[in-house]
Design a protein around this nucleic acid. Structure first.
Lengths: 309, 309
DNA sequence: CTTTGTGCTTCGAAATTTGCAGCACTCATT
DNA sequence: AATGAGTGCTGCAAATTTCGAAGCACAAAG
């Protein structure tokens, strides 16, 4: 789009931190870019960047503006999506940020199901921890976010919340595998591997341990659940994961046992969008499908909390 | 603003209904305008106008787009207002649509009070009946609307609602002036003058009369309250108005008596804005001032119903 | 003190936009 | 049927805007 070019350039400069770098990124000369910015500031009525010896940086007015720009670009996409939809094309693109646990089973199945009905719709999936996912929403980089234990709930529109208990993950034949449900202290008696602090499940574990005399002493801290899955088969270790990220019945090497709620609080899986934003047709429908799918998960594992839209 | 010029042109064409007319309005040639539109449709990916033998008209996609355009323009104004505000200038513009009753006393006083503190802020006041006021909000022609008995409440954000009884207006020495409060049937026994159906107060009167054996037989129907004020001094006629549009104590030619609520329902004076829209700094503050002022009107005449933001 | 990197300016060239005139068409009027 | 006024659209040359290459002044780093 032509009439938005200047806005895109401004965003590029803001990201690059320097007019010359941004000019290179956008394949134009620095002089042209420089003047476009100056002209824009003239028309806008106020400077957008503060000039530093080492480059430029957005000033407060610019921060306001860049937020507006991102919103407008996303909004234009939405309008085009609506137009495509009413011309019967059912095209579109959905960008979603989600927790790691959704990656192996849930998201692939949902996306495939959606694309079976709407082959013209494409997807971007970004695995993000809970803070990064919210940042993506704010910057209009993702349309939706589906994460455990979001940190700033109030700043977003919540489409659905769902509780999931924390499960212990261990190799078949592990001594703890004999019990139906486990206490956290039993797990901590064995070598355990946990994710880093920015991950939702670690947050819940930290909260739980804070009230115990026993302390957490992980033998490994890894942000990859794949690592954890394989590590617990090496020594008699215990890992942790939400059931939505596990193949509860079908795994022939691992066993999974829920931790009691009085020990470790359940995780809140939350589907969110930018506050007040109207999503594209494709995104809105996919969000509805996600909500329905989460709502129909096997009963004992989940409990529905809130639903809107 | 340069990067929005094409959008403004599109809006002009939509309003004019013809490219040539719009070109004249915008002081360019029709060929230039024609090609800008064609280029835009090319970039946008779909036609915006349907070509008729007599001109052009927005197609459904265009309707969607024009709504986006108006929103974008209003949004940009808001950002500029915010920027002006944080640079300490306290500039801005407030556009408000309101019922006739607000015109003589309330709005002038409120605007003057606001401008006393913020001389950099200018105002547009549009007197509109309740439907036209809502249309203004939808088309982003007004930031705020303050009207009696809005028709499609659900489509807007309601900032405040206030009840006002209907008053009978008559000349000093009128036979009915002896009573403190009046019944509607007493008024209808005299010649009466009422506003046309699109005005809120007429709507309330029609509702009231529907349940009575007595019928309304206006000697005059006029959309000007000024006319009504003067006419009731000519013969022993009765008019109707809300107290906010009357100088209750200070009028030396007219007297005003409230109608009982069981006869005529109270009018709902409602302050609204476009749903989900973030107003400019000036508009938001003025809205707050209006809400406070309405809240502090003399007690017996009004009753507060709802307040938010 | 040199080097590197920055924003900004100048000026001729390139690209885009504009205006004029005219075409093909439809509709209302004669 | 003829006419005229209205429409959207299109070549083409002129006007306007934008761009790119080079260079300047300045500040921080080496």
């Amino acid at each position: 789009m032509k009439h938005i070019q200047t806005l895109l350039l401004i965003e590029a400069v803001a990201k690059a931190g320097s007019i010359r770098k941004a000019a290179e990124d956008m394949n134009i000369t620095s002089s042209a870019l420089n003047r476009r910015i100056q002209n824009f500031e003239e028309e806008f009525g106020a400077p957008i960047f503060e000039r530093l010896p080492r480059g430029v940086r957005l000033n407060p007015a610019g921060e306001l503006l860049i937020q507006h720009i991102r919103g407008q670009i996303a909004e234009l996409d939405r309008v085009r999506s609506q137009v495509a939809d009413l011309s019967g094309l059912r095209r579109g693109h959905v960008s979603i940020a989600c927790s790691q646990a959704l990656q192996p089973y849930f998201m692939p199945a949902e996306i495939a199901a959606y694309r079976a009905e709407h082959p013209g719709v494409s997807f971007s999936v970004h695995v993000r921890d809970r803070d990064a996912a919210e940042e993506d929403l704010r910057a209009y980089k993702s349309d939706l976010a589906l994460v455990f234990e979001p940190t700033h709930l109030g700043e977003f529109d919540v489409l659905l919340t769902l509780e999931q208990p924390v499960y212990a993950v261990m190799a078949k034949g592990h001594p703890l595998a004999t019990k139906e449900t486990l206490r956290l202290r039993d797990c901590l008696d064995f070598p355990h591997v946990v994710p880093p602090k920015r991950i939702g499940i670690r947050y819940l574990l930290d909260l739980a341990v804070a009230n115990m005399s026993q302390k957490m002493q992980p033998v490994a801290e890894a942000d990859s659940f794949e690592f954890m899955r394989h590590y617990v088969q090496q020594e008699q270790a215990v890992g942790f994961q939400f059931p939505i990220g596990l193949n509860l019945k079908g795994d022939d090497r691992l066993v999974f046992r829920p931790l009691q709620k009085r020990d470790v609080a359940h995780g809140n899986l939350t589907l969110m969008q930018m506050r007040g934003r109207t999503l594209s047709v494709a995104s809105a429908r996919f969000a509805n499908q996600l909500a329905a799918a989460l709502n129909n998960l096997p009963g004992e594992l989940v409990r529905l909390d809130l639903k809107s839209n």
